[in-house]
Write a protein that binds this DNA or RNA. Structure first.
Lengths: 140, 140
DNA sequence: CCATTATTAAACAAAGTTGTTGAACGACAG
DNA sequence: CTGTCGTTCAACAACTTTGTTTAATAATGG
């Protein structure tokens, strides 16, 4: 009866997932921002530290940081003037998940993960494989 | 003696790798284009077929196809008027590689791939782990 | 010869991105 | 009081992206 409702909320879920991938991939599509993530992988950094390697104004770098923050990739702790940024890599798992679906298509790489997927395919319950028959226009 | 040369060519290599990630991630940062890749995962499609699910002009969709092609994700075979597009997922491995470096940071997901990586870490030869100490400003 | 076909090209508008500079903020040291 | 500090904000320019519409293309079928 409220099937239409559950379809609706499913679509909303799917849409927001898609939106998350949009912001995520767009955040990653810039070398400055990827460089900042690299720095943060090493340790916590202030905005000024993050900006230091780049030949641009602090204001510009600050906006890159904000883009990363909007994508959920940076957590910021403000201790008076100074903003301390930490990496939050968890949103990257969405990108990883998205990519996992396509992993089967570059089969010339028979390495680590690929082998695993093959093993899993041979078993009764493939654990988290995406739906096999995506209609065009749904789920990005 | 030609150290500066090799450093130069190394930087060129790194830069072009970075550029590839730029175009790749930007291509993925759009729901229409991700949807097209999904269609192509199922089978080869013409541009018209790829465009069909979307509420936009064919010209607009055609440009999305071109973006995917520029990122190397689509191979196009022109058999008279009709352009047949096939998925070429291989460039996605660059994204996968990039993400792999950060996988250790969302350790709360102890699923498939994560477990594998742990097992491999316990062995003598970790097969393809990224360099442990990236200096800021290098290698994006 | 003319229309149909699948697709790109060209010209345009609206919107978004990325950089710049200059100003503001508000505790703390002088 | 007055600077100084790390940072964001606002206003602006240059460029890119994404959509639109209209036209070009060139073999094939009538």
């Amino acid at each position: 009866m409220n099937d239409s409702l559950s379809v609706l909320s499913f679509n909303i879920m799917v849409e927001s997932e898609s939106l998350q991938l949009d912001t995520l991939f767009n955040a990653l599509g810039d070398p400055t921002r990827r460089g900042m993530l690299r720095q943060l992988a090493e340790r916590e950094r202030t905005v000024t530290e993050l900006a230091a390697p780049y030949d641009m104004s602090l204001a510009a770098a600050s906006r890159h940081v904000k883009v990363l923050e909007s994508a959920g990739l940076i957590r910021r702790e403000v201790r008076w003037r100074t903003h301390y940024c930490r990496l939050n890599a968890e949103p990257l798992s969405a990108a990883q998940n998205w990519l996992a679906f396509y992993q089967r298509f570059w089969t010339d790489r028979l390495d680590l993960l690929d082998q695993i997927l093959r093993e899993e395919d041979a078993r009764p319950q493939p654990p988290a494989s995406p739906s096999p028959n995506p209609k065009p226009g749904e789920k990005t």
